[in-house]
Amino acid sequence: MSWLTKTLSSSIGKKVLMAITGLFLCSFLIIHLMGNLQLFKDDGGYAFNTYTVFMTTNPLIKTVSYVLYFSILFHAVWGIYLEYQNKKARPQGYAMSKNQGSLASRNMAILGTIIFVYIAVHLGDFWYEYKFGHLPYVTYTESLSTGEVTAIETLPDSYTQEVKMLETFNEAEGTKSITVKDLYVEAEEAFSKPLLVIFYVISMVVLGFHLLHGFQSGFQTLGLNHPKYNPLIKKVGIWVFAILIPFAFAVIPVYFLIK
């Protein structure tokens, strides 16, 4: 065995893999949330839809997204495997147990599994639809001088185009037309279903709990524990990752539902 496989197959190494993938997924959440905030712009989905194109075409982001898919799968599968191993370490349980440690920390596998299901549903709703489904196209006309969107036209269902984004310039009028898939309207449609919105909101609460333990646990596993900086890590874990981010994500479907 090489030193690397030896290290990574030790109990500490295994946890390090969970920590690295987990913290990477945390960083992804920030990016994803920043993109999603475009949904709140009252511009008929212009900013959001062009952002979506950027995210699916930029070569660097595409590469990172493969790492992301892998991380999600790995974090899930590895987590289940570790949980299985951990269960084996105590073949006979207690008749009575007080279970010290936070609720979240003791149930990471269950929380994680719910999140995994959520991710599958979420990808089916948007990623799959965007890539393989039949989304309508929309054309935005933008004034070149002010950058203001002056007209939005939804194209007929039968319309398709080879490229993800078609840009045409009308120099006479000083405008630019952009034709893209309308994922924004897909979001509007999806979040008009109350059951799905509830599922999304619950999933975000679950995510919050998962991160409540997960974020700071990742640092501990990597050995990054210092009396001076621990309070900061703890606070960021609680306020940013367990509360703010899941809350912001959860607001989106609710916003669309009541809009």
């Binding site: 030790s10 109990s11 500490i12 295994k14 946890k15 570790l82 191993q85 951990n86 084996k88 370490a89 105590r90 279970n99 010290q100 440690g101 936070s102 920390s105 003791r106 990471m108 333990h213 700071q216 646990s217 501990q220 596993t221």
Partner: peptide, 18 residues
């Protein structure tokens, strides 16, 4: 010591703090 710990069949630490 970690190698021996793993060989003894203890579980993995998940930082629950219990």
């Amino acid at each position: 010591m970690v190698k021996q710990m793993d060989a003894e069949g203890f579980g993995n630490c998940t930082n629950t703090g219990a």
